[in-house]
Design a protein around this nucleic acid. Structure first.
Lengths: 123, 123
DNA sequence: GAGGTTATTCTACAAATATAGAAGCATTAT
DNA sequence: ATAATGCTTCTATATTTGTAGAATAACCTC
């Protein structure tokens, strides 16, 4: 599943709101808002790509995602790790921790998340 | 700095080798290798984008990166975190550890990386 | 120094992307 | 009913991307 930038941006809105009508989407965009026909085009393309679907409600449609954000983003992330870090997640992780400038507190919380993970692996 | 996929792939080769001549690049591609004119086009575009430069050596050019991989990738990563995780690195981190399916060993090594980080923050 | 080899530029073209006008069809407000 | 509104589809255009042929220039070899 490959989405263009504009499509990704729109998907983000849809993921965030879970279900949206056209008007909700327009609202969600910052100024300068795109023409509604632009959004309509993107919605169409997303349907073709099977990224979203809709339910008819009265005269308009309520759009919802067909793919989970975590799935989409997870595969994207794995691709990045593959491309930039020779498929080594730990190499990426080290880059990540140094590069994103996490606070001490954030690092601690990350550590405990990892501990959780390790525990669950062991069980 | 926004690079297309093909450009990114080429940059990766250049980053890996640090300095390359055309022939080195061609070698680095898997079969089916692109036409050398294709590579030449991409090199040209990367120059326009100020992503690479070259030194003339005899009759040919030795290309080298103008932007660091870590810079490029770091800003890409931060963008992703911003777009997908509401600008919360720790939210991303937790996603990362669950989603990339790290082995227990990798998790341990990641944990020690984080410990290093915490120590260095404290000092 | 004629002919092959290699790198570079120019030109080209199809596909994908970003963006939106025009037109049509419901629905709602007057 | 009529007009205004909202949404969707169709059509269209400019730009970017992926890919590479043709032409050219500079070496290398014999």
């Amino acid at each position: 599943m490959n989405l263009s930038n504009a499509e990704e941006q729109l998907m983000n809105i849809i993921w965030q709101k879970e279900k949206v009508f056209m008007k909700d989407i327009l609202e969600a965009y910052d100024e300068p808002k795109p023409a509604n026909t632009t959004i309509a085009t993107l919605l169409k393309r997303l349907q073709e790509k099977q990224a979203i679907a809709f339910k008819v409600f009265g005269n308009s449609r309520e759009y919802y995602p067909l793919i989970a954000k975590s799935d989409y983003f997870g595969s994207k992330l794995n691709l990045l790790i593959k491309n930039f870090f020779n498929d080594s997640p730990s190499q990426f992780a080290s880059f990540f921790t140094t590069e994103t400038n996490l606070s001490e507190k954030q690092l601690e919380s990350l550590k405990s998340i990892i501990d959780e993970q390790i525990k669950s692996k062991k069980s």
